[in-house]
Every structure is written in structure tokens, then in C-alpha cells.
Nucleic acid binder design. Sequence first.
DNA 1: GTAGATGTTTTGAGTAATCAAAATAGTATG
DNA 2: CATACTATTTTGATTACTCAAAACATCTAC
Lengths: 223, 223
Amino acid sequence: MPTSTVENYVKQIYLQQQSRAADLLPMGQLAAAMNVVPGTATAMVKTLAESGLVEYEPRGGIRLTEGGARLALHVLRRHRIIEAFLVDVLGLDWSQVHEEAELLEHVVSDKVLDRMDALLNHPQYDPHGDPIPTSQGDIAEQAILPLMSCKSGDQAIVARVSDQDPEFLQYIERHGLVPGTQINVSSLNTLADSVEVRLPKDKTVVLGSNAAAKILVRPHIAG
Amino acid sequence: MPTSTVENYVKQIYLQQQSRAADLLPMGQLAAAMNVVPGTATAMVKTLAESGLVEYEPRGGIRLTEGGARLALHVLRRHRIIEAFLVDVLGLDWSQVHEEAELLEHVVSDKVLDRMDALLNHPQYDPHGDPIPTSQGDIAEQAILPLMSCKSGDQAIVARVSDQDPEFLQYIERHGLVPGTQINVSSLNTLADSVEVRLPKDKTVVLGSNAAAKILVRPHIAG
DNA sequence: GTAGATGTTTTGAGTAATCAAAATAGTATG
DNA sequence: CATACTATTTTGATTACTCAAAACATCTAC
């Protein structure tokens, strides 16, 4: 049985490997993501390698094995179903559920998870818009793009807000940019480094490119 | 922040102190309840005493402080609300939820717990019939009654055997009627002046009213 | 009142995870 | 190519928890 710590490392390696395109994840990257000093990450990675969860190339970096990826997706499934459950069944705010899920993901049994999943009607996406892996470990690869890559006039649906900072999430929520929201890129100006989007009810929000980079959208082809 | 282990020790001390009437809980009792070797319990109790959660009398035993009891009741509240939630909302079997709750009780936040509590309509008893402490730490004190005052079909826990006669005590022990044992009043006949109780493992014992009068129990209200 | 039996504490050691700081490798700069 | 910079690894310690087994108290019995 993997410890919570092992699960967290493997999950984080998976997530980091997603965002960075490179094959090998550098040690420092992992240490930063896990909020530990580099030496700790090195030590931990060695034991992960012993258990066959990662391949470790000293001074090069790490990569998940088949088994490591399977575990990562398993943890991710737990995390995301729990988030969905906390929002949809317990009525918590989607900007606050990440921390909770971070702890719960290591202790809910498969039985409980299945009940949650059933009660939610087997959702495909969590409240942040992240895809939920199946129990077999399949995950929906989705064509989602950063908001800044849209053109003026494009329609899209907010797919994901890729940041966990509660303050940012709350800001996003106050302005109605939650995942699932249909938006309209009313003007996008690369020179002014900003984008204005129109939301339902004719509200508008202006974001700088740094903020906009965290907003990922599924482009909506207007019928 | 107390660790899960500390919470478990404190909870267990509370529960053991309930069933045994004595003021001081002997070390061996705690070690057995926690499933650790005696030395481990001794070591742990010392750190609990350092944190002001228990009073420790070497070679005598332990007793919860005010603060220790508060923590114990807090954990117990979590445990029991979670059990109720797993049964009533997620539809699990009441016989299976204890293990789950054992893990979850250390990680659910107050916010989540409050939502569960509200969703369940502030239940007073968990699925096993144990009273749920309030968030202020008040708990319904369960009356201790003579076994003969039960009705057929009642569930109860042996609370005390109020007799000092070694022969009687040994008889009681041989038949598994020690304090803490969960019993089921299978038939109680005032005319025949006897009561039959069913124990775990489907053993049964028949006692006359004189003997039964010495057995004090805490009735278990289901639901 | 010495001799066991029983229960408790101490001692020594191990595991999992962490940090601080010294050592080392690799890469880039002059 | 030596020098310096950066990333990584090693080393030595620490914390929280645990066990096995030796040492020690306490109570009981003879």
C-alpha cells in the first residue's frame, strides 16, 4: 500500500509532466512542486524508483513508469470525484474544495468513491473543468486552448482555470468566469496585452495576459 | 495540530474510560485497545501528558484532562457524523462504515462536517446507536440500568458488574459478559424470572433475576 | 519476608519523511 | 581551459511512531 506521501509525489510528477513538454522531469521542478528541499525529493525519488513507480536518471530527471502513471491517474480520479462531490452534494464553493480533496483523496475507499461517482451520475469533469479519469485509468484528452489564443469574436466555454490560488479563484468566480461558462471574446488586443470577454447577462471582464494564460477554453463552433 | 495517532489514543482512552468504571485507566488496557505493545503505549502516553491531554501516574494509569476529553469528544463527533453520513447519504451498510470513518475522522474539515451534519438534519445518534456529541462537546449521557429493566430485543453494552464475589465475577468472565461487551436481549421473562442474552459470535447466556440485577448496561438506541 | 507472577517501564533499534548544509557534477562564461 | 554558477546529491540530524526484549516494581502467596 502506497503512503499518502508516495501518492502525492506520483500525482505531482504526473501533473508536472503534463504541463512541461519535456520527457524527463527535472528534480528541482519536482522539489518545488512538492514544497520540499531538493535533497528530500532526491531521497524520495530513489524509493519511488525502488518500488518501480518512476524511472530515475541521476542528474537527469525522472519519468513515471507504466505502473506509476496508473497510480497517478487513480489518485487523480479520487481527487476530482471528491471535488465534484463536495461541490454538487455538500454545496461547498468550488474555489475551496481543492485543499479538502487533497487530504480526502488518500483515505476514501473504492466503495465510497463508487457511491459518490454514482450519486453524481458519473461526471466527466470536475468543478474546475479537469477531466476525471475512468476507473480503468483512461482520461479524456481534450482540445483546450489558452484564452489568449482565441480571436476577437470567438465563442468558447471556460474549460479550466489552471491555478489553485484561492484568491485568484475567488476573483475569477466573482466575475463569473467559472468552468462551463459560455463566453464571447469581444476584443483581444495583443499590443495592449489584454483581452475582454463578454459573459451571459452582458457582463464583461478584462484580463491581462498573465491572468488570461491561466484560463483555458474549449472553443465553441457557433452553429 | 494533533496527529491522527494522538487523536486515536485520546479517543480510545475516552472510550475505555467509559466502559471500565475505574478512575484510572491501566496502561495494559490502553495498549490492548490500541493494538500496540505496552512499551509503545507508555512512550505515547508520556507525550500526551506533555501536551496536557492526559494525567499520567506511572505504574498507576492515566486519565484524560479537561482538554483531552474535549479533543476526544471532537473526534468522536466526527467519527459518528461520518458514519451516519456514509449510511444515510451514500447508502453503505452500517456494519461496514466503522473502518471508513476511522480514517475519515482525521481529515474532514469542520466545514465539511457541518454540511454533513446539516444534510442529515443534526442527528443525535449514529447508525450504531451511539450518541453524537455536539460541536460544543456535550454528549447525551447514557443512563446505566440494570439488565432486568431492558425489554426483549433491546441492544445494550455491559457497563458494570456490581459484585465483588470472585466466583460470580469469574463466571461472568467465562461467559464473556465483561464490561464493553455488546449484548442483545433475546428474551426476558419476568414470570420465569430469567433473561437470555445473545453475545457476539452468537453465544447465549441465561441469567436469573438475582444475577441479572448485578449486571448494569447502557441501552443502545438504534438510529 | 523471600519467591513468583504480573504488569509496566526502559533501552536499543528500525522505518518514513523531512531539513540544513557540505560535496559534487555539469554547464556556461570569460 | 580554468573559473564560476547552478542543479543535484550526499551526509548527518531530527521528529513521530513503532517493536522486541531486558529491567524493574508491585502485589500475592506461601
